[in-house]
Simulated scan of single mutants.
Amino acid sequence: MTGIICINKKKDITSFGVVAKVRGVTREKKAGHTGTLDPMATGVLPVMLGGATRFLNFIPDSDKRYTASFRLGQTTDTLDITGEVLSECEVNCTVDEVINALSHFHGVIEQVPPMYSAKSIDGVRLYELARLGKTVERKPC
């Protein structure tokens, strides 16, 4: 089988886990995904099958768009809702102030990936290292 299947990835499964399930269903040994979604992230994950896998490197995975929700006044060790709450404080701001603060996050942004992310360094996902209590140097991307 050769082609692309776009999967609506649910939370709590890795991108690799999705590919493994697709391999099982299609019985296609050659399969791979474009980009990587954190296990807690949901969204479209293109999976290439068979001969289409040779085009994985030609499909850009840098044009991503995210929809997020957030909780003001709370900090966790993972920087997301899955982590242990480290601090909480009362927030006193207007909707306009929040919208103004969010305006700085439009457009092309380079950021240093947090340790709790799906970014791979030397073949290991950062979130795996973070769960082992390890920190490694990361470059902005």
Rank of each mutant, 00 (worst) to 15 (best):
L49S: 09
D96G: 04
L37R: 05
F70S: 10
A41W: 12
T14N: 02
D77I: 00
E84C: 02
S103V: 10
F55R: 07
T94P: 09
V44D: 08
R71Y: 13
T36P: 01
K9P: 10
T14D: 01
Q111R: 01
D12M: 06
Y66C: 00
V95G: 07
T14L: 01
A68I: 01
F16K: 08
T67M: 09
K10A: 13
I7V: 09
K64W: 03
E90V: 13
T53M: 05
T82Q: 02
I13S: 07
N92F: 13
F16T: 11
V19M: 08
G73P: 14
R27H: 14
E84H: 04
A52P: 06
V108D: 15
L72K: 10
V18D: 05
A31G: 05
T14F: 03
Q74I: 15
F58D: 12
V85M: 03
R54W: 04
R23K: 14
V25L: 13
E110H: 11
E28H: 08
N92C: 10
L72H: 08
L45S: 14
V22H: 06
P46L: 06
I59V: 15
L37H: 04
S103I: 11
V44G: 12
R71C: 15
L79V: 02
I13F: 06
G73N: 08
C89V: 15
L49D: 12
I7F: 04
N100H: 12
M40K: 05
I109C: 03
F55W: 08
N92S: 11
L37I: 02
G24M: 07
T26P: 09
L72E: 13
R27L: 15
S69N: 07
R27S: 14
L49C: 07
S62V: 06
S103R: 06
G107H: 06
K21P: 00
K29A: 06
L37T: 00
R54E: 08
D63K: 01
T75Q: 15
R65K: 09
R27D: 15
E97C: 03
D61P: 00
V19D: 08
V85Q: 01
L49E: 13
A52C: 08
F16P: 01
D80P: 09
Q111M: 03
R54L: 06
F105M: 07
C89I: 15
G43N: 10
N100F: 09
E88A: 02
T14E: 01
L86V: 12
V22P: 03
E90A: 12
F55G: 05
H104V: 03
T26I: 04
A41M: 09
